[in-house]
Amino acid sequence: MKSALKCSVLSVMLLTAATAWGKTPALASCTRSANLLACVDADGNAYSVNTVGNTIYLRGFEKNGKRYWAQTNSRFGQMTFFTGIASDGEAWVGYTRRVGWTTINRFSSSGGSSAKFTCSRLTGC
């Protein structure tokens, strides 16, 4: 799957975790208002996060793929469902379920990618 979905699912963790080689990733430059966060990273990718109640709207631009994408996350208790679409026609759906300090994540895309992975605050993903 293209990196837009992975970035939108794991963006918070990527900003705070070290990379697989032990280097700290370059942080994005962000501007914030009451409900909106807009960021651009060192690679030229851009995204914004808008929160309205229990719904989070993500929009972005992936520089390498030269495509725009949008994703909507809706939270219901410990479950968060998300759907997204990109300018090249790829669409994806998935969910994240919190169980204590662990999250169970599953997604699939129209591009043929799918995955299920578990993340923990103590051990990572």
Rank of each mutant, 00 (worst) to 15 (best):
S87P: 06
G77P: 13
F76S: 15
L27Q: 14
A28V: 04
S108A: 07
Y95G: 09
A91R: 15
A70S: 03
A28T: 04
G100W: 03
A4W: 15
M1D: 11
A20V: 13
M13R: 07
V9T: 08
V93K: 05
L122A: 04
S120M: 03
S29T: 14
Y95R: 05
R98S: 09
C7Q: 14
R121S: 06
W69K: 12
W92Q: 09
M79N: 14
S3R: 14
F81K: 14
F76E: 08
K6Y: 13
Y57V: 08
T96N: 13
S29P: 01
W69H: 05
A17K: 08
A4C: 08
W92E: 09
N50W: 11
T51H: 13
V93P: 01
T24I: 12
F117H: 03
C119K: 13
E90W: 08
N64H: 13
G44C: 03
A28Q: 07
T19L: 10
W69L: 09
Q71M: 06
F82I: 00
N45P: 00
K116F: 13
Y68A: 13
L15T: 13
W21I: 11
N73A: 07
V40H: 07
G77V: 01
A18N: 10
A115W: 00
L14V: 08
N105F: 08
L5G: 05
I85E: 12
G94K: 01
L15C: 09
G53D: 02
A46I: 07
A18P: 13
S108P: 01
A115T: 00
R121N: 07
L122S: 07
